[in-house]
Amino acid sequence: MANNQPPACLSCGAKGPCGGKGLLTLKDGVWTSNPLAIQILGICSALAVTNRLENSLVMGAALIFVCVGSNLLVSLLRNRTPHRIRMIAEVAIIATFVILFDQFLKAFYWDMSKQLGPYVGLIITNCIVMGRAEAFALQNPPLLSMVDGAANGLGYAAALAIIGLFREILGTGEVMGYPVLSGEWYTPNQLMILAPGAFFTLGIVIAVFNVFKGQETAENK
């Protein structure tokens, strides 16, 4: 990666507000160092909420919102935040965004809020959010930090959606509540809805991800 010239943003080029690093940052978050499949972060929620595709999508949206918001604020404040209390400040900012999203769900998507239960609130402790604030937003300008937050949120959401899709199809025979695998020839496998199904699916997703990534790295060499 070091010797390659980073691809410039499509819209603004190397002199744009992201300094030409936007696309690379995006690719990094979604693919090269996908938080779930490569960095293996945020596993707890990925196991817990992926029993249905719908839940996975909402959880992914929540993480994108929180990552973008907290990265923006942390980055805006990065030169004013005293180094000693930066982590406390990060957590306060992250918690604010998470609770905002939780309130929104509780007010307007009550059923979804019930299904996700405590896992929306637990985004506060999600390593991905804190990790991006600490590792990226503290050193980078606001716009680029937002791109990074969105990229990592998207990477997490995509991995969650894949896991959710497979677990829902195999576990209930449905996709988003609509029957897909139904009839006499397929008996929904309850195991896929339960915790072991989540472990199996997540393991397979990580493996497949790494196989593809390994091929890519080999080609680059």
């Binding site: 209390i85 306060a92 900012i93 604010t96 309130q103 929104f104």
Partner: peptide, 27 residues
């Protein structure tokens, strides 16, 4: 450091109070 923490805490708290008030009737 103290001032920073106080201001950040107050801003976050105000934001959350506003959102809680706004969503209260719906909830």
């Amino acid at each position: 450091v103290l001032g920073y923490a106080a201001v950040l805490g107050t801003v976050c708290a105000l934001l959350l109070t506003a959102s809680a008030n706004f969503t209260a009737p719906y909830k």
